[in-house]
Design a binder for these strands. Structure first.
Length: 777
RNA sequence: GGACGGUUAGCUCAGUUGGCUAGAGCGUCUCGUUUACACCGAGAAGGCCGUAGGUUCGAGUCCUACACCGUCCACCA
């Protein structure tokens, strides 16, 4: 064995050995009478490249998968990727842009071809990166959300909801991203604080002197105002309700109405209503039958409704011009600085323009109910516990979900519009092109141009990957899945919707335990992002520098169960690399001690206090590690293993073993115990640091066996002895004391210590050997 | 505005049901090449456990308020 462990020499070879063994595929596992255990890998986007979050999440899942495999479960960890509608389309569009082309020039079919080409070339990079992390996924079952079978499942789902009356279509105000030119759902928006202004604008009252002042952050939208609203309880405006004002610039007459949602304490307490470009205004507009005037188009430019002089201007320019004119015409009362949040597209960071557009929605209230129940009744176990509240709060107040997107890359809606001059709104919902429309008699059809929200298909991941809607063997064996590990920022986007669809289509929860892991931040406490390359740590660089095992262990070592964020500290990886090297050298030492002798770990005799102590400690550690992994407390488990192996086994027992092997009476029993402990810790560590433990396992097992499927250590209670541990602690205390005081002669004072050393005179010898000091009792 | 996290050694973090003489890794300092390991060993220094109250024989741990940092939610125009 080399003096140092060099990960690069082993990792690739070991991974190939695992793949060759076939044991990533549950069908090849033997002795799996303990039942099935399945995990669906949260599918990374095809556009994704490995970041720290993936490294963390993959490690967590791999530890659980390997642990369960060693515990005799038939483990399936199913991998795959997500087509990631907007994200992927954007990437390919950008690529085309560099060549000076747009997707529209190419046309839909050609463009989709291009995206597929891109996907074939780059889409699996991330999966290869997961392999570098040691992921024990069954790659033979890899799925993609746009696979033919998967797409069938998506279609079936849509048709099912439609037939149930849960899907409807209609004009609504939606979050419109002008850059992606599509609608997006409420949860695909992010917010950014901006130093804005609050403009106070006077709206003159009709036929009267005087005016009502409103405050707005978006003066350009006033061109589309169709009312002013005040709170019905607001006394200062009481008498004005029902009156009319003249809208400045446009010179339209618009009514003053009342609505309880108007905050009388904000601004002047009067709110201008632009139903076409604001959520609240839309709502108030609907309830009051207000006219809708679209002044901003889907391209974020002013429309002709905005008036001749504004038409074609960008929102920004229109704002400038509107403000100038208001000032000139003396409508502007004042301007205040006003920091506020603007909404941005989560994918491309363009400002969202609320727009009225015809979209498809799914009614959520009824669907949410069983999903609420499942978690409230703990059939789905969300961990850490506090996230149950987060999950429930959202579902209890859930809004309808806009599922249509004006993109090309994705699952096209199984909706066929009738090509009929008279009725352009008539359509048939069907997986195949229909022959004839029963409603309007049309025989010619055109499929809807919209595709479904990416998350609509992701919602089916736990079962569509297993072959649903067909009743496959896999579905029967591995659904519901056992465990989901994911980031908490997709609770709403993904987790809730998987629970909903699992219950709707299979009448069973999609997973038993859900663990929301910590978010990895850079060491300055900021989110890692591409815009700050220095703070953004690439896991592959870490693997290169410290090896995969150290990267994995370092992540686990920095983690603790409930915590929300981890400030990534490279020092933990370094410490882990050193720990792995320590393990390597412990093994090397034992290997040398064994002198190629075949020592069977049978009939263990513990002849000394140290023997009994280390066996007691080992068994306690086996128990705790097992419990901790079972409860997903992987940080706690790795901490304990680190401490036990380094500071108990190596620092104490190994040193004592050097003395014990000098004595023919204790030599053999000591060697046996050394080997026994080592074999156990190799197994306990395997889920965490799979590569080095596999190498070491081969070193001590000449047979071509893999630790990957070796049985998990059993906790033997009879070895665990409190009294022995206490006695050994006394020895440690005495030795530590002697060392710290650097004394040459030591007199034992404590009665308890005297008693022990009188009872067991050999311990005096031991202390002497460890400290080279004569004891006086 | 609401909800949830965090605040413990110079840095990054552990501290279960209240018993702590508050721990680890890194860093600093002092020794050290002895049957594995200098990616090592032995040791040392370093803490009013965010602030202020309260409960208790006893509080880092429980309660209340506040401050700062962070995350999520909301129809703050």
């Amino acid at each position: 064995m080399d003096k140092k462990y060099n990960p690069k020499e082993h990792e690739e070879k070991i991974y190939k050995r695992w793949e060759k063994s076939g044991f990533f595929n549950p069908d090849n596992l033997k002795n799996t009478e303990k039942g099935n255990y399945s995990i669906a890998l949260p599918p990374p986007n095809v556009t994704g490249s490995l970041h720290m979050g993936h490294a963390l999440n993959t490690t967590i899942q791999d530890i659980v998968a390997r642990f369960k495999r060693m515990r005799g479960k038939k483990v399936l960890w199913l991998p795959g990727t997500d087509h990631a509608g907007i994200a992927t389309q954007n990437v390919v569009e950008k690529m085309l842009q560099k060549k000076g082309k747009t997707r529209h020039e190419l046309g839909r079919e050609k463009f989709i071809e291009k995206v597929w080409e891109w996907k074939e070339k780059y889409g699996n990079i991330i999966l290869d990166q997961l392999k570098k992390l040691g992921a024990s996924c069954d790659w033979s079952r890899t799925r993609f959300t746009l696979d033919k079978k998967y797409s069938k499942a998506v279609e079936k789902t849509f048709i099912h909801y439609y037939k149930k009356g849960l899907i409807y279509r209609g004009p609504r105000i939606v979050n419109w991203c002008p850059r992606c030119s599509t609608a997006i759902s409420d949860i695909e928006i992010k917010y950014k604080e901006e130093k804005g202004k609050l403009w106070y604008i006077k709206y003159p009252l009709e036929n009267k002197d005087g005016f009502i002042t409103i405050a707005t952050t978006r003066p350009e939208t006033m061109l589309g105002d169709t009312a002013i609203a005040v709170n019905p309880k607001d006394k200062k405006y009481e008498k004005l309700i029902g009156k009319k004002v003249i809208l400045p610039l446009a010179k339209r007459k618009i009514p003053i109405i009342s609505h309880h949602l108007v905050d009388k304490d904000f601004g002047t307490g009067a709110l201008k209503i632009t139903p076409a470009h604001d959520n609240l205004d839309w709502k108030i507009g609907q309830e009051n039958n207000l006219e809708i005037i679209n002044v901003i188009g889907p391209d974020a430019k002013m429309t002709k409704e905005a008036g001749k002089e504004f038409k074609g201007l960008s929102v920004k320019d229109a704002r400038k011009k509107v403000v100038e004119k208001l000032k000139k015409e003396n409508y502007l009362q004042k301007v205040e600085d006003y920091p506020h949040k603007i909404s941005l597209c989560d994918r491309c960071s363009s400002p969202i323009e609320p727009q009225i557009s015809t979209q498809w929605f799914i009614k959520m209230e009824q669907l949410a109910k069983p999903a609420i129940k499942a978690v409230a009744q703990k059939r789905v176990n969300l961990l850490p516990k506090r996230y149950q509240r987060v999950y429930l709060d959202w579902l209890e107040n859930v809004k309808d979900w806009c599922i249509s997107r004006q993109l090309w890359w994705g699952h096209r809606l199984p909706v066929w519009f009738c090509e009929n001059e008279k009725n352009k709104q008539c359509f048939v919902v069907s997986s195949e092109k229909p022959k004839k429309c029963k409603k309007c008699g049309a025989t010619k059809f055109k499929q809807s141009n919209d595709v479904l929200d990416t998350w609509f298909s992701s919602a089916l991941w736990p079962f569509a990957t297993l072959g649903w809607p067909e009743k496959t063997k896999d579905l029967k064996e591995f659904y519901p899945t056992s465990f989901l590990s994911t980031a908490r920022d997709i609770i709403y986007l993904w987790v809730t919707r998987m629970v909903i669809s699992g219950l709707e289509f299979l009448n069973k929860i999609p997973f038993k335990d859900v663990y929301f892991h910590s978010t990895i931040l850079s060491i300055d406490g900021q989110r890692m992002s591409k815009s700050r390359p220095k703070a953004n740590v690439n896991p592959l660089d870490m693997i290169d520098k410290y090896g995969t095992d150290a990267t994995r262990f370092g992540l686990m070592y920095s983690m603790s169960f409930g915590q929300q964020a981890i400030k990534f500290d490279e020092r933990n990886l370094k410490a882990s690399r050193n720990f792995i090297n320590k393990l390597w050298n412990i093994s090397r030492f034992i290997d040398m001690q064994l002198e190629n002798k075949k020592i069977e770990i049978k009939n263990i005799e513990s002849k000394t206090l140290a023997d009994q102590w280390i066996l007691s400690r080992l068994n306690k550690v086996i128990k705790n590690t097992t419990d901790n992994i079972q409860n997903f407390k992987l940080g706690e488990a790795s901490d304990e293993l680190y401490d036990f192996i380094w500071h108990e086994f190596a620092d104490w027992y190994l040193e004592i073993s050097k003395i014990q092997t000098q004595n023919p009476e204790t030599k053999n029993s000591t060697l046996k115990i050394l080997k026994l402990i080592l074999c156990n810790i190799i197994r306990l560590l395997h889920p965490f640091i799979p590569f080095v433990t596999e190498v070491l396992y081969s070193q001590f097992n000449p047979l071509d066996e893999l630790v990957m499927i070796a049985p998990w250590p059993k906790h033997k209670k009879e070895f665990q002895k409190e009294k022995i541990e206490k006695e050994f602690q006394i020895i440690q205390e005495i030795v530590n004391h002697i060392r710290s005081e650097k004394i040459k002669h030591y007199k034992i004072e404590k009665q308890e210590y005297k008693k022990l050393l009188t009872q067991k005179p050999k311990l005096r010898e031991l202390i002497k050997s460890l400290t080279k000091i004569e004891l006086e009792i």
